[in-house]
C-alpha cells in the first residue's frame, strides 16, 4: 500500500520529539512522502515564525521524503515576503496558514499572490466555528471565497472543516480546492461524502500527526466505500499529482 501524508506538524515546544515520531512513521508505515509544517501559537511573533519554519526545515534535512510547507503569519505584513523567499530558497514547496487570520482576510492576499507567482499550493486550516470558537478557526465559506477569487490558486482545505458536510458543500464546484480529512475522530461517511460530492480526484490523505495517529486516519480510508482506484487516488496519487 502506497501512502503520502499531506498534513503533518512539528510543534515548536516539542520539536525534536515530533521530528523523531514523524521519521519513525515514515519508516514504519512506510510513507512515500510526507508534508510537514511547523506550528506554535495562533499568532506567533516574527521571530517565532522563523523558528517554526526552521523546526520543519530540520526534519526536511533528515529525510528526502519530507517536503516542507512554510508557515506565515499574515499579520506581519513586512515579514511575509522575506520569510516566503527565505523558505522557498531552502526548499519549502507549499504554504500553510493556520489561525492568525481567517482565509478571506485582506491580510492574506499578499500570501496568495506569492503562491500564485511561484506556483505553490496553500494548505488552509479549516474548522467550522461553533460554540464560542474564534472566527479564525476558518469557516469553509471563507476558503471557498478565496478559491473563487483566485481560480489559479491550488487550495487544500484541512480537516474537511470538521463538520464535513458543511466543509465539503462549501467547495462543491471549485476545481482548485482539494480537501483532507486529517484529525477528527473517525466519523463514518467523512471520506465517502467528499468523494461523492467532490470526486475521488479532489480528496487527499492527511493525518494531522502528531495530533492524531496516522493509523487512525488510515482507518477512515479502510472503512470508506471506495474502489481500489479511488483508494489509490486518495492515499497517494492525488497528492503526487497536485502537490510539488
Amino acid at each position: 500500500m502506497t501512502v503520502i501524508d499531506a498534513h503533518t506538524h512539528v510543534w515548536l515546544r516539542r520539536a525534536e520529539n515530533d521530528r523523531r515520531a514523524l521519521l519513525d512513521c515514515i519508516e514504519s508505515v512506510p510513507l512515500k512522502r510526507l508534508y510537514v509544517t511547523g506550528l506554535d501559537n495562533h499568532r506567533p511573533d516574527e521571530d517565532t515564525v522563523v523558528r517554526i519554519n526552521d523546526a520543519a526545515l530540520e526534519l526536511m534535512r533528515r529525510d528526502e521524503r519530507v517536503r516542507g510547507m512554510l508557515y506565515l503569519n499574515p499579520r506581519h505584513e513586512k515579514q511575509v515576503s522575506e520569510e516566503f523567499h527565505r523558505c522557498r530558497d531552502l526548499g519549502f514547496v507549499m504554504v500553510k496558514l493556520w489561525q492568525a487570520t481567517t482565509a478571506d482576510d485582506r491580510l492574506n492576499e499578499p500570501v496568495y499572490e506569492l503562491c500564485l507567482e511561484y506556483g505553490m499550493p496553500v494548505l488552509l486550516h479549516c474548522f467550522c466555528p461553533v460554540r464560542g470558537a474564534t472566527s479564525d478557526q476558518n469557516p469553509p465559506e471563507a476558503i471557498a471565497s478565496v478559491a473563487r477569487r483566485h481560480p489559479e490558486l491550488t487550495v487544500m482545505l484541512a480537516h474537511e472543516g470538521g463538520d464535513f458536510i458543511r466543509g465539503v458543500e462549501a467547495v462543491v464546484g471549485l476545481p482548485n480546492v482539494y480537501v483532507d480529512f486529517s484529525g477528527t475522530y473517525g466519523e463514518r461517511g467523512m471520506v465517502d461524502y467528499a468523494v461523492e460530492h467532490l470526486g475521488a480526484d479532489h480528496v487527499i490523505f492527511g493525518s494531522d500527526m502528531p495530533g492524531s495517529d496516522i493509523y487512525h486516519n488510515l482507518g477512515k480510508v479502510y472503512g470508506a466505500n471506495l474502489t481500489e482506484d479511488q483508494r489509490d487516488l486518495v492515499l497517494w496519487k492525488n497528492a503526487e499529482r497536485v502537490l510539488p
Binding site: 475522530y185 473517525g186 466519523e187 482507518g219 477512515k220 479502510y222 472503512g223
Partner: peptide, 9 residues
C-alpha cells in the same frame, strides 16, 4: 464512527 480506525491503531 468507524471501527476501522481504532482497529487499524
Amino acid at each position: 464512527n468507524l471501527p476501522d480506525c481504532p482497529l487499524a491503531q
